[in-house]
């Protein structure tokens, strides 16, 4: 998977690139509008991460240029600006997703994966991990072809964990991911523990490996040892 990151803040770009590279996503970086336009002209990407406030112009220019060149890259806007207008304008100009700064890198990664899956849709909606099959469309899980009875939150958690394989996910990041719109209203992250425990038990009972590891104090990690 090859993506283009358009972001003027180098420190943030470094972190994003390093996190994505470690998850088998190759990431190119453009720090301004000019560099970004050149890269778009030369290459095709699976996904573009776009900051709206760039030193030499408005990130919306990229969206307009993509439209002009009839390119179908998925675009996720990553911006500090968050008003209804910029969101609507972004979506109208062809952006696929909108992530407001600050965000968890794990969240960014699953958003990229979801977007790429949507874009490269070619019949298969199943993500497989060893004996586990996750059907994105029907939101069902099978272990060794036997269906596992799983709640919506557990399904979301499973997808989040498998999407961030071998990465430590903090309880906070998981809680925010599972809460969606309501993330700002979180009072505690205790429910993450219950969901993780239940998911772990269900997978274990269905005969799957013990992939969900508790990382002391920090959170959880999907790992095959």
């Amino acid at each position: 998977m090859k993506i283009l990151l358009i972001e003027d803040e180098k420190k943030l770009a470094d972190s994003i690139i390093s996190y994505l590279n470690d998850n088998a996503v190759s990431c190119e970086w453009a720090s301004d509008l000019h560099a970004a336009l050149l890269k778009i002209g030369d290459h095709d990407y699976d996904c573009i991460l776009l900051d709206l406030m760039l030193p030499d112009g408005d990130g919306f220019e990229i969206l307009k240029e993509l439209k002009k060149q009839n390119k179908t890259e998925g675009v996720i806007i990553i911006s500090a600006k968050e008003t209804l207008e910029t969101r609507i304008e972004g979506f109208n100009l062809g952006a696929d997703d909108y992530l407001t700064k600050p965000f968890h890198l794990s969240e960014l990664l699953v958003r990229i994966q979801a977007l790429v899956r949507r874009k490269n849709f070619n019949g298969s909606t199943i993500i497989s991990y060893n004996e586990i099959d996750i059907d994105i469309l029907s939101k069902t899980v099978k272990v060794n072809n036997n269906p596992v009875d799983i709640t919506k939150k557990e399904f979301d958690l499973l997808l989040f964990l498998t999407g961030n394989k071998n990465r430590v996910l903090s309880k906070g990041a998981i809680a925010e991911h599972l809460s969606g719109d309501m993330a700002d209203m979180l009072d505690n992250h205790d429910f993450v523990y219950a969901h993780a425990k239940n998911l772990k038990n269900k997978l274990k009972q269905a005969g799957a490996g013990d992939y969900i590891k508790t990382v002391y104090g920090l959170g959880y990690k999907w790992q095959n040892d």
């Binding site: 803040e9 420190k11 943030l12 972190s15 994003i16 390093s18 996190y19 470690d22 500090a80 407001t100 700064k101 600050p102 965000f103 968890h104 890198l105 794990s106 990465r167 430590v168 903090s170 990041a173 990382v215 002391y216 104090g217 920090l218 959170g219």
Partner: peptide, 27 residues
């Protein structure tokens, strides 16, 4: 203006969290 440094802050913590050598105290 705070949002960008906050984003960097968050990203760096997420990255640091991946460090295998973290002890209890650091965690």
């Amino acid at each position: 203006e705070l949002q960008t440094p906050l984003a960097v802050f968050q990203a760096k913590i997420d990255t640091l969290m991946q460090n295998e050598t973290l002890g209890k105290e650091q965690s």
